[in-house]
Amino acid sequence: MSTPDLVPRRTYGGVIAVWVLAVIAGVAIGILVPAPWRAQWITVALGGCVVAAFAIQLWYGRSQAFIQRMAASVLGALVVLGLITAGFGLAAIVPR
């Protein structure tokens, strides 16, 4: 039998941390990777965000709403990387 936490830890920090990781990875890919390889590296970054989300959410040690926190983390990272990729696409069609 487990006792409930009197003051449970906030779980939104882990979700936001994965989003920040996605922003950092997307910007690093935009700066360091040549244009033809960016799409492949964005998928690798999303995979890394999924693994990071698992690690962060398991580190919290709370089973309540685990699936919801994982979904929010991964979906947010997908949206962030999608917006960054859309920026890459728009930048590619703008003449220099």
Rank of each mutant, 00 (worst) to 15 (best):
Ile42Cys: 02
Val20His: 09
Tyr60Asn: 07
Ala52Val: 05
Val18Ile: 11
Leu75Ile: 15
Arg10Asn: 14
Gly30Ser: 05
Gly89Leu: 12
Pro36His: 01
Ala17Met: 13
Asp5Gly: 05
Tyr12Thr: 15
Val27Ser: 07
Ala92Asn: 08
Ala17Asp: 15
Ser2Asp: 08
Ile93Asn: 00
Tyr12Phe: 11
Ala72Ile: 00
Met1Tyr: 11
Gly47His: 07
Ile16Gln: 12
Ile16Leu: 14
Val23Glu: 10
Ala91Val: 13
Ser2Gln: 15
Pro95Gln: 10
Tyr60Leu: 07
Pro34Arg: 08
Ala25Phe: 05
Ala45Asp: 04
Leu46Gln: 05
Met1Trp: 13
Val33Met: 02
Val74Cys: 08
Gly14Tyr: 06
Gly30Phe: 02
Val50Phe: 12
Ala77Phe: 00
Asp5Pro: 12
Leu21Thr: 14
Ile29Lys: 08
Gly82Thr: 00
Val20Met: 09
Gly76Gln: 00
Thr43Ser: 12
Gly76Val: 01
Leu46Gly: 02
Gly76Thr: 01
Gly89Lys: 10
Leu21Glu: 11
Gly26Ser: 06
Asp5Lys: 13
Ile24Gln: 11
Ala39Tyr: 14
Thr85Cys: 08
Ile24Asp: 10
Gly82Arg: 00
Ala28Leu: 14
Val27Pro: 01
Val94Ser: 04
Arg96Thr: 13
Gly13Asp: 15
Ser2Thr: 15
Gly30Ile: 11
Val44Ser: 03
Ile24Lys: 08
Gln68Ile: 04
Gly26Pro: 15
Val18Gly: 09
Leu75Val: 14
Gly30Pro: 06
Val80Leu: 01
Ile56Glu: 08
Pro4Ala: 12
Gly48Met: 06
Leu46Val: 02
Ile16Tyr: 07
Ser2Asn: 14
Leu46Thr: 01
Ile93Ser: 05
Leu83Ser: 03
Gln64Ile: 10
Pro36Ile: 06
Gly47Pro: 06
Ala53Val: 04
Ile24Cys: 09
